[in-house]
Nucleic acid binder design. Structure first.
Lengths: 337, 337
DNA sequence: TTCCATCGTCGAAGCGCTTCGACGTCCGGC
DNA sequence: GCCGGACGTCGAAGCGCTTCGACGATGGAA
């Protein structure tokens, strides 16, 4: 293994000069820097990560905690993870993957051993047990999702409340008067996952504001679950003409189920969804949707973390991405009666 | 931060004794060990990862390179990643996430800086440009998938060739004489992704052996792509009664398309697939399938790597998991003519 | 009883890097 | 012409841990 002293000898300077030439933390003459860089290339030098971490108390690694639980759409998690990794790399950092399963002990472990410099936590619940820990930790963190009490924490998310509202407002603008929300699987609500609850709030508030009749229906992420909800809706709300879907996996089966039951989309039923754009656009009936910008969220989270690591104390505590609705083929004005 | 000297002082022993009590690399009396452990708990000591890595030249971190490219089913990648992380944790290791995008330079970086002790590489192609690098690297690695020439490498995968054969044999056993393979998207074959090619080989070999008429059709991972293939098959192979699907995303749309075209599954058309069991079982028509054991592959890969790290020189170079077919509702005997 | 091996512990020497203080040099301002 | 500061570099001191050699004590074999 070639080390910094080898480079120093080869370039005819001291090890500290090599270090400064690399880090830029002190001025080094162009001439010297060039010699050092040439030696580095020639010898194939790579600084030892452990030694660097020990001396500088920076590992240049971020922890990313990903959810495993049911009811969470996997491709979204993956998009998010990839975007965190890509962004971290732009700042010369790597990403350590932790599973939710490891729990608070896992966070403690990687933080206390200085394995990572900072943490990103996904799938935050309203009353997440990890919050006190994250507040107390000496290392910065960013949460994806907003807990009930976010003081002292940095959070990033799509504004799900506004997303729910936007879907309803769109349907209201098209003249629909009776709407339903087909939401995430029941366990997601039981766990008080923040984003799911916020959609419900936004949905309900906008429906009330527009004096629309509305109802909320958790839905299993399976074709059978979607069919069940569709049948239930037809039975209980025959006047229904607008549906908001916040459940990636149920979206397509739900449309199928409605059509099997004799409802044409969008002729008889308008549908809006909150889901990744790629999904909405690829369906048999492209669905009008509010995008779930997983990649952007990941990038934002990583960037906020880098700012915090850089000592920036003016990092915003809350970053809510405004929802953006794309019109597609699943919505139409309500037919005049 | 509490360090090993603090623990040593508190327990009334030397730092090296604490280290040995922790690692077990030298005998320590029960009495002393207990005192040390009590001090560790009381002080909340956690060894500094960087210091440990520097002194021991072991970081206790594995690199996992995940594919980003189109045509790869995301949930499978995720399952795999989670299973690697979980298994690694059992051996007190963590997992660093790299994207394919980083390429060979990324592998070099994490290996040469000693950021990781070993690597797991997914989505291996027949002539993967990373192979020479992996062979030359001083750190052990395990590949998921078999390249064309696997000498000097440790590889793990489902036996896709046998899986393709098994699907055909099953159809043959049911009396089908004309079969088609609906495969991965074209770009997957263009890249020479190993597993896709192997399925084709197995499929073709088994069909030939059984004197069946057969054809192979790459298929986009979209509903539209699936419809196109279904229509094409009906037009070009009207006698078709058996289909093997090796394309997770196209599976459901393909069945829909066949049924829209007037073919009942399994009455008119038997379908077998190679895909994760959860997917096959959850479809409207549960599909007879060869399981894609992502979790088991991840576990195997991680375990092989731990053995190599442990100095085991008798680690098998090739681990091919035997395919396992589960009968479901999508297959039936060919109707007598 | 003697000898040697093993057990249990200690001290010291690094592992490869960063960083701090120091020092000589050069330059501009007065 | 002198002084102060910036520039460019060096040497040395760690960062917190593991590991090697050493050493006294203990015990079984001869």
């Amino acid at each position: 293994m070639v080390k910094i002293t080898d480079v120093a000898r080869h370039a005819g300077v001291s090890p500290s000069t090599v270090s400064y030439a690399l880090s830029g933390k002190r001025p080094i003459s162009d001439e010297t820097r060039r010699r050092v860089q040439a030696s580095i290339r020639e010898l194939g030098y790579r600084p030892h990560a452990g030694a660097r971490a020990l001396a500088s108390s920076r590992s240049n690694v971020l922890a990313l905690v990903i959810p495993l639980r049911t009811g969470i759409h996997v491709p979204v998690v993956m998009q998010f993870a990839v975007s965190v990794v890509t962004t971290a790399r732009r700042y010369d950092h790597d990403v350590l993957l932790l599973t939710q399963e490891e729990g608070e002990e896992g966070l403690h472990r990687v933080a206390d051993t200085a394995l990572v410099d900072a943490l990103i936590v996904m799938d935050v619940q309203l009353h997440d047990p990890r919050l006190p820990l994250l507040r107390a930790l000496e290392r910065p963190s960013v949460l994806i999702g907003f807990p009930s009490d976010a003081t002292g924490l940095t959070c990033v998310d799509l504004d799900f409340r506004a997303a729910g509202e936007l879907c309803v407002e769109r349907l209201a603008g098209l003249g629909h008067r009776v709407v339903a929300l087909v939401g995430s699987p029941p366990e997601v609500y039981v766990r008080e996952t923040a984003f799911a609850q916020r959609v419900v709030q936004g949905f309900t508030a906008a429906a009330d504001r527009n004096r629309m009749a509305c109802s909320v229906h958790p839905c299993e992420a399976t074709p059978a679950g979607a069919r069940r909800v569709a049948e239930h809706l037809l039975r209980e709300q025959p006047a229904l003409t607008g549906v908001v879907v916040h459940n990636e996996a149920a979206l397509e089966p739900l449309i199928d189920a409605f059509e099997h039951l004799g409802l044409r989309v969008p002729t008889d039923l308008s549908i809006t969804a909150i889901c990744p754009d790629e999904l909405a656009a690829a369906l048999r009936v492209p669905v009008t949707s509010v995008a779930l910008p997983a990649a952007e969220l990941g990038e934002r989270a990583a960037e906020l973390l880098m700012r915090k690591l850089g000592g920036d104390t003016a990092v915003p505590e809350a970053t809510l991405l405004a929802p953006h609705l794309t019109e597609r083929a699943s919505t139409a004005p309500r037919e005049a009666l």
